[in-house]
Nucleic acid binder design. Structure first.
Lengths: 192, 192
DNA sequence: ATAACCATGTAAATGGTTACATGATTAG
DNA sequence: CTAATCATGTAACCATTTACATGGTTAT
C-alpha cells in the first residue's frame, strides 16, 4: 500500500492539508499501523491532483504559505475502494528496539536500559494518544481498530514492566559469557 | 537498521547461508520483528565479505549450486556491537489489514471477511512458529523477546475472535451510510 | 507431471528518507 | 533569544522489492 492510497484513505475521513495528514500518522488514529513523512505525502498529493483523484482549495494565510486543503473526488473515492479490495499483504514490522533487546547479551547495561525505556515510553505515549481521540462519530471499523491498538499497546507496556528484571538483571545462568563491559556503570552484585 | 546489520546479528547466533538467514526471518526467532528478502540479503552478504565483516566457506553439493556458509569475523562482531549501541528508532509498522479493517464501512462483506481471516491466520501461524522454537540454549534477551512476541500474537488472535461480530456484523447504528454493496452475498438481517 | 524446496544471484523499477530551501508566528 | 509550530516543496540518496535467470531434487 503506497502513500497515495494512505492519503486517499485519510481524506475520506474529511478534507485536510498535507500537514494535517502527517499529523494523523503521528498522533491520530493511524499512528499505530502506518506512517509517512512529508517527503512522500506532498509528492503523492500532487500526483493525485494531476490524476484528478483529489481536488485542492487554496486558503490564503497572512505570512504563512497558502494552505492547500485537499478533498476526495468521486474518482478518488472509487480508487480508494478499489485499493481497499486488493489482497492484503502480511504485516511488516521493523523494530530496532526488539532486535537490540534480543541481543541484550551483547549490550552494555546502560544501552539495555536505554532501549528498554525507549520502547516502553513509545507505547506509553501511544496509549495516551489513542485515549485522547474522540471516537463518538467513528465508524465501526475505526472503533474496532482503535480497540485493537489500545489493547496491543497496553499488552506491550504490561509485559515490559512485568519482565523488566529478566532483561536488565538476568540471573547468571541466563546470561552466557561474552557480555560487553559497560563504559559508565558497573553494578557489583546484580539482582541481590 | 539495514539488512547488513540484521545479517550480522543472525550470524552471531551461528554460521549460516543466505538461504538460511532468510528462513530465520520467515519462520525463526526474527519473524515477528523484522524481515528481508533474497534481493537484499545476498547483496548485503557480498558487500560484507569485501569489507571483511564475514568469512565464507564454500560447500560443494552435488547438483545444487555451491552452498556458501558465512561466519562472523572479529571485525564483524565489533561492527555488530557498535550498531546495536546506536540510538534505537521507533517501531515502524505497516499493516494493510488494519488499514482495511479501519475502513470496513467501505468494504464488501466478502472482503471484510477475507481481511479478517488473513489477519487472524497470520498470527495463528506466528504463534505456532514461535512455539516450535527450541529456546533451551537461548540467551536471556532472546527469551524475553520470544515471550513478548508470543504474548502479542496471542493478544491479537484473542481480540480478533472476541470482537469478530463488531467488525463483520456491526449493529446498524454502528455502520453509517455509504457502505459498499457486496457482489457475492447479502445478509438481510445482520445481527438480530 | 507439477509443485515445492534447495540455492544463488543480478538488474531494473519503485518508493521512501533525508537534507535542503523558505519564512512568519507564537510560546517559553 | 530560542525553539517549536505552521506550511509547502524539491532533489539526491538510499534501500527494498520484483522480475528475471539457472537448475537439480523430492514430494504429491
Amino acid at each position: 500500500m503506497d502513500t497515495k492510497t494512505l492519503c486517499l484513505a485519510t481524506l475520506s475521513l474529511g478534507d485536510a492539508t498535507g500537514y494535517e495528514i502527517k499529523k494523523m500518522f503521528e498522533e491520530g488514529s493511524f499512528s499505530h499501523f502506518y506512517d509517512a513523512g512529508f517527503g512522500s505525502i506532498y509528492p503523492a498529493l500532487n500526483k493525485m491532483l494531476s490524476e484528478e483523484l483529489v481536488n485542492c482549495q487554496y486558503v490564503d494565510q497572512a505570512g504563512r504559505p497558502d494552505k492547500k486543503v485537499y478533498s476526495l473526488t468521486e474518482k478518488g473515492r472509487e480508487r480508494l475502494i478499489q485499493e481497499l479490495h486488493k489482497a492484503p499483504a502480511f504485516d511488516k514490522i521493523r523494530s530496532e528496539c526488539v532486535v537490540m533487546m534480543f541481543f541484550a547479551h551483547l549490550l552494555s547495561d546502560s544501552q539495555t536500559e536505554r532501549v528498554f525505556d525507549t520502547y516502553v515510553n513509545q507505547y506509553k505515549q501511544g496509549i495516551q494518544c489513542l485515549q485522547e481521540l474522540d471516537l463518538s462519530e467513528a465508524a465501526h471499523g475505526r472503533r474496532f481498530v482503535h480497540g485493537l491498538g489500545l489493547k496491543l499497546y497496553e499488552t506491550i507496556v504490561e509485559y515490559m514492566e512485568q519482565h523488566r528484571e529478566q532483561l536488565l538483571n538476568p540471573l547468571p545462568d541466563q546470561a552466557p559469557p561474552g557480555a560487553v563491559a559497560d563504559d559508565e556503570e558497573n553494578l557489583p552484585g546484580g539482582a541481590a
